[in-house]
Amino acid sequence: MPKPEVTIIDIAKALGISKTTVSSALHGSGRVSAATRERVKAMAASMGYTSNRAAQQLRSGRHHAIGLQIPEDVLNLAFYMEFAFGAAEAAAEYSIDLLLHTKRPGRPSHSLAIDGLLIIDPTEETFPTALIAQRDTPIVAVGAYFGPGAELVNAWIEADHRSLVQTVLTELQRRGASAPGHVALTGRAEPLWMSRVTAGYTDWCYARGIEPHVLRTSIEPGESEIAAILDAAGDNDALLWTVQGAATRAMALAARRGDHTTQMATMASDPGSSNLVGIDLRAREYGQSAAKLLLDVLADKVEHGSKVLHPAVLSTPKG
């Protein structure tokens, strides 16, 4: 296995100083004493640090910051916060700050002092206003989007949700499910990845002669809403939930009601879903990859319209 690349964060930790001081010492910027500069350079040499050309190009940017736009109604979901942490970690390796920007549908976006923007789960409600606010700012979209302004996206990164949902359903079938239902999202404009989950579900069902049964829930369903879904499931012996965290709560509620046979599965695993079949989107790694893609865009290392596939994995109950 190749040795991990040494970053300015590693040097800063070794010396007990800030990454900003390390960056200034290595690149001749800022107010750093000669003694500190020599100490930093010596440590960098001993650790095998090599300067990154992309980082050098980024330092010539106007703001030394990138932005991450997240829909406001998903901030309580673990995936988005883990994604943000990963993006921040990747940006920090280049001495770049990450600004978190929430977007509420119907509310105008305001311009951010950033050199590039990550837009997660773009929809026709959130994407065009971001384009207007940021004007010529390079953009990486996290998730597919074909609405107005899509041609202006510099690069894309996404998981293959249509294929992943079929992987989950096949695993449920292997575990005995013969009539799985799907609990999709309602009450907001769906990002394209959610629509692809539903499309993948119906394709899988029709290919096996199973009648699809799609139910709908809000982004953060309460117990009464989950109970209504369980009541409406009918003959479904498994339920695949799109919204993160809902499958775990549904399984607990079903058990309290005496139902220990209906399988629950999720398209976005979290720490509480280790006893469920689901998809681990590897949120922190996803955020890191998205931020690095944007940094490569800013360094002119990526062709316009490039697409990157983020690998997600099937997770199954432990034990």
Rank of each mutant, 00 (worst) to 15 (best):
P2Q: 08
P180Y: 01
D296I: 02
S163D: 10
E190C: 11
L98A: 05
L164H: 11
G209A: 08
V197A: 10
G319T: 11
I219L: 12
L68G: 09
Y94K: 07
L99A: 09
E158F: 13
S224I: 07
I17T: 13
T198V: 15
E82R: 14
A177Y: 02
F146L: 14
T266W: 00
M1A: 14
Y49F: 11
A246E: 04
E125Q: 14
Q134A: 09
K103H: 13
L240P: 08
S18Q: 03
P105E: 03
L309N: 14
E225N: 08
A290D: 07
L15M: 13
V6I: 15
A184S: 15
M47Y: 01
T21Q: 11
P191T: 06
E125Y: 00
R31S: 15
I8W: 01
W156M: 10
V142N: 07
D160H: 07
R208A: 05
L58D: 05
Y94M: 09
E220K: 07
A54N: 08
R59S: 15
T170L: 08
A55F: 01
A14R: 12
T137M: 09
G181P: 07
E124Y: 00
S51T: 05
A247V: 07
E82M: 10
L281Y: 02
I9L: 12
T7M: 04
G200S: 10
I66K: 03
M267T: 13
G16S: 08
V183K: 04
S269H: 04
I9W: 00
D259C: 09
S306K: 09
L15R: 06
R256G: 15
N52V: 02
A252N: 11
A25D: 12
R257V: 09
G176Q: 05
K318E: 14
F146C: 13
P138L: 02
T217M: 12
I8K: 03
Q244K: 02
A247K: 03
R174M: 10
A246S: 15
H101I: 14
L240R: 03
L230K: 07
H27A: 11
A84L: 08
A291E: 03
I11E: 04
A233G: 11
C205Y: 02
L185M: 13
E223W: 00
P271N: 03
G258Q: 04
S224W: 00
V165L: 04
V153C: 06
L293S: 11
A312P: 13
A255P: 08
E285M: 08
V313W: 01
E72V: 14
A246P: 05
A113H: 06
